[in-house]
């Protein structure tokens, strides 16, 4: 079995700097979960479909299962742990809670990071836009309705429109 040379990387995750030595094949998702212990990022498919592993890399959403940790050398990564805390939820998390937009919660971190991106960079004029923006994240529990409601409220708030 071929072995590969390890690589030293430095990156910022949720505002904290890390210097680690990794095997090139280590997926960013596994790096976050196993090397850093940030288990809020979930893994549901490892082939880019489910979106559970969505994080933000240098300010935009990305699948952490489709990146190697070595590629994040020098990058700024944000995971769900960068949002609010149990006692002080982030506004997106609050909206998800208010609208019961999660059940088992497994898909939720990926949705939250996607929604953060959508709110920052997408108009979301109609609910169809919201659904389209969410289409890269699979939720098997909620049927999406409550998630769409939560994002609608957030988008309206962002746009200063009454809900």
């Amino acid at each position: 079995m071929r072995m590969s040379r390890t690589v030293d990387i430095e990156l910022t995750v949720n505002g904290e700097s890390f210097a680690e030595t990794v095997e090139p094949r280590l997926l960013l998702s596994d790096f976050l979960r196993e090397t850093l212990g940030l288990t809020g990022t979930h893994v549901g498919c490892e082939h880019g479909i489910c979106g559970a592993c969505t994080v933000r890399v240098n300010g935009v959403s990305a699948r952490s299962c489709l990146m190697f940790a070595v590629q994040a050398d020098g990058a700024t990564v944000e995971t769900v742990e960068s949002l609010g805390t149990v006692s002080s939820l982030h506004r997106i998390q609050e909206a998800f809670r208010k609208h019961h937009a999660l059940q088992c919660g497994f898909c939720t971190p990926g949705f939250l990071m996607t929604v953060k991106d959508l709110l920052e960079r997408h108009p979301l004029t109609t609910n169809a836009d919201i659904r389209d923006g969410l289409s890269g994240n699979i939720c098997r529990c909620t049927g999406y309705d409550h998630i769409v409601k939560a994002v609608r409220e957030l988008a309206n708030e962002r746009d200063g429109v009454a809900s």
Binding site: S4, R5, P24, R25, D73
Partner: peptide
């Protein structure tokens, strides 16, 4: 579903 080992070079 983990990749096989490889070497990596960023150019």
């Amino acid at each position: 579903m983990k990749p096989a080992p490889f070497d990596y070079l960023a150019v």
